[in-house]
Design a protein around this nucleic acid. Structure first.
Length: 440
RNA sequence: UGUAGGGUAGCCAAACUGGUAAGGCGCCUGACUGUUAAUCAGGAGACUGCGGGUUCGAAUCCCGCCCCUACAGCCA
């Protein structure tokens, strides 16, 4: 590509450091404003958008004509001098000297996404192009920061990354529906819905581990909080209990929020996110038992009965008026998975905890302490009618040096939706997979 | 899967108790030397989701199907 740029190549993000220099910026035409003898192409290069100026009197006829007739999203390389300019959005502007059009989008097939209103369905059908627009760019940038923050947190706190398989032989939790995949020789495997069980084995090998990858749920959920394919980070710790889960979860959330606030101001601004709401999220988070949560909800008019799980509106009610997440712990054993350690004093309760984010973003973390006693685990497998043979390897973890251990899972997309302050989770991943949408 | 709402040009969208398809964006032509989703003037572009029915006449009413959205259940 070097023959295409006639001057030092820079990105728009670097432009402020090159004021007074003549540089080349390769990119795409975001928009074009024209006014007779002066044109303002807005150049987009993935790092930002920059207003450029072309004045007829200062340019060869052909160059000006080329600029004037550019079409939206045409690819081009602009060369010119960078100048500080108060009238330009972003504060810097390029005085265009040369233009090289790499591909001009023909007007017979103009770029479909215009700078005006579009419906969700149309935009989702053009998701591969929609990613070029400012809002999507900002959300994906925040997603990147969230993922980097999560990794940095675990990497700097003694956790080893041990990724778990995506093809799994059976249900990890038995409840949710699984996607079935044809394997070789008539064998069936399933797409993972959690790395949990493998994580427990890995924790016994490495002490503190985490896995980070996609998970799949074949539930026919059709809400703004659900995807059939989503990313989850799951830490697991040996010699740890429910309190450790609460402490680590709280630290992780605060760490990642601080990173987003530190490095993604521009994106938050583009999304008109109320950053004061994020800045308010500090430890300690609110702590509440399931018992108290049920009483609180009933007092607020919820239909919930002791023994039931929280609905969507219940979660919103629980954080009503709160500026930070609430951790609800000690759920009835029946509503939780088979592997939860029971409370020593009240065995009808499971040592699990859910973190419910404020502003209606719902559950972002779910986890707890696992059963470490082999006999109890066997009993639970029977109660849940799970095939013992499939869990022999899992039982081995209780036969060879079992220890109390605990962990949790955090859904990346819900976290990103919360950070971004957006309504629907579908915008937090580049290519969302939902109940009735698997394309593009 | 249930309940509710919706499907009108490439996109957004109006059209009352049925009367013969507004407006805007984008595209094309022209004007404009500081535009900020530029503005102004003109132009092209629609078997009103699909199939059937009622009617002199259907975007509008009725039946069936398809698709979308929101909410609920389940969950991260």
């Amino acid at each position: 590509m070097s023959e295409l740029s006639s001057a030092h190549r820079i990105t728009i993000a670097e432009a402020s450091r090159h004021a007074g220099e003549t540089v080349s910026i390769p990119g795409w035409l975001y928009n074009l404003r024209r006014s007779g003898k002066i044109v303002f192409p807005l150049l987009r290069d993935g790092t930002g958008v920059m207003q450029c100026v072309g004045v007829k009197a200062n340019l060869p006829e052909a160059t000006f004509e080329t600029l004037k007739n550019l079409t939206q999203e045409s690819s081009l390389i602009l060369t010119g001098k960078i100048r500080e300019e108060g009238r330009a959005p972003g504060g810097y502007e390029m005085d265009i000297e040369r233009v090289e059009v790499v591909q001009r989008v023909p007007e017979e097939h103009p770029y479909p996404i215009t700078p005006k209103d579009h419906g969700v369905d149309f935009l989702m059908d053009h998701r591969h192009l929609w990613l070029r627009s400012k809002r999507q760019h900002a959300i994906i940038g925040i997603r990147h920061e969230v993922i980097r923050g999560i990794r940095d947190y675990f990497d700097s706190h003694g956790f080893t990354l041990v990724d778990t398989p995506i093809f799994t032989p059976a249900a990890c939790e038995g409840t949710s529906t699984l996607f079935e995949v044809d394997y070789f020789d008539d064998e069936k495997v399933y797409l993972t819905q959690s790395g949990q069980l493998y994580n427990e084995a890995n924790a016994m090998a490495f002490g503190k581990v985490y896995c980070f990858g996609p998970t799949f749920r074949a539930e026919k959920s059709k809400t703004r909080r659900h995807l059939t394919e989503f990313w989850m980070v799951e830490p697991e710790m040996a010699y740890a209990d429910l309190e450790d889960v609460k402490r680590v979860g709280e630290e992780l959330v605060c760490f990642v929020i601080a990173r987003v606030l530190e490095n993604r101001r521009e994106e938050l601004k583009a999304l008109e996110r109320d950053v004061a709401k994020l800045e308010a999220v500090k430890a300690p988070f609110h702590r509440m038992s399931y018992d108290d949560a049920v009483k609180l909800l009933q007092g607020k008019g919820s239909e919930i009965q002791w023994g039931g799980d929280f609905g969507n509106t219940d979660e919103t009610l629980l954080t009503e008026g709160l500026d930070r997440p609430v951790m609800v712990d000690r759920y009835p054993t029946e509503v939780k998975a088979f592997y939860f350690q029971p409370d020593a004093e009240r065995p009808e309760l499971a040592l699990g905890v859910d973190f419910i984010a404020p502003e209606g973003y719902g559950e972002i973390i779910g986890g707890g302490q696992r059963i470490h006693d082999c006999d109890l685990l066997l009993k639970r497998l029977e109660e849940h009618k799970l095939p013992r043979e499939a869990f022999e390897w899992y039982l081995d973890l209780r036969r060879y040096g079992t220890v109390p251990h605990a962990g949790f899972g955090m859904g990346v997309e819900r976290f990103v939706a919360w950070m971004s302050g957006i309504e629907h989770i579908r915008e937090t991943i580049a290519y969302p997979r939902m109940l009735y949408r698997t394309r593009p």
